[in-house]
Amino acid sequence: MRRLVNRRPGTAGAAYLAALPFVLLVAAYLVGSAARLAENPNDKLLPAPSTLGAAIERVATQEDLRSGDIILWTDTAASLERLGKGIAVSAVIGLAFGIAVGLIPYVRATLAPFVAVLSMIPPLSVLPILFIVFGTGEAAKVVLIVVGITPFLIRDLALRVRELPGEQLIKAQTLGASTWQIVLRIVLPQVIPRLIGALRLSLGPAWLFLIAAEGIASSDGLGYRIFLERRHLAMDVILPYVAWITLLAFLLDLALARISARFFGWAEVR
């Protein structure tokens, strides 16, 4: 009998195994839903597939009676816009400060402890402050994402910069590079793939902050809709929304991974 650590599934076997937990989850849902509905046809906790389908059709294809919008798409557009702005701003700030803190000793001495302390502030605890300062409009939600993930990006990128071999920086100087040229030609190109990796890790927190902000004060967005529907226990809308958010997050992660592999192949070789 071979050891368990040495036994590997084949390609087809791996695909079946990967599908297994999903199939089990769906099966468990269907069984649970059927059992509850058999006992109480008005049960709202685990709606039947037909009810879910009807709700999806309603939010994805029909205009809302009150606003005239097709709410799934307006919610998605609103949320992705906030998420995109938040991540873009965070990436730019994270890159600029990460490189400065990692590369320049004076900046590091000045800012590294400060950023370390900032990153310990629980971002949701400043959400009320953001609402007071920026109002309950778009800015507060974007700023919450920025506040939530930028300190991590700065610290991660600064670490990555410091991991660059010292020999590289010396060599660049013997080739006549100024500090600015070192940033532009040596550090920045090598840190961008790391930035993409750090952004992938930040997507989870970014969604968390987005949905929290939307749930508390908003008039559209995926998080807003979930919190709104909670009031009348509309699991038939909430469950598809959660699945949709998961799919969007997964696709964003996949896109970043593809970009990294496509444009920064050299970074994967090592």
Binding site: P165, E167, Q168, I170, K171, P189, Q190, V269
Partner: peptide, 10 residues
Amino acid sequence: FQRYSVFPHL
């Protein structure tokens, strides 16, 4: 140097 004298991204 013994190692790391060339730039991996170029």
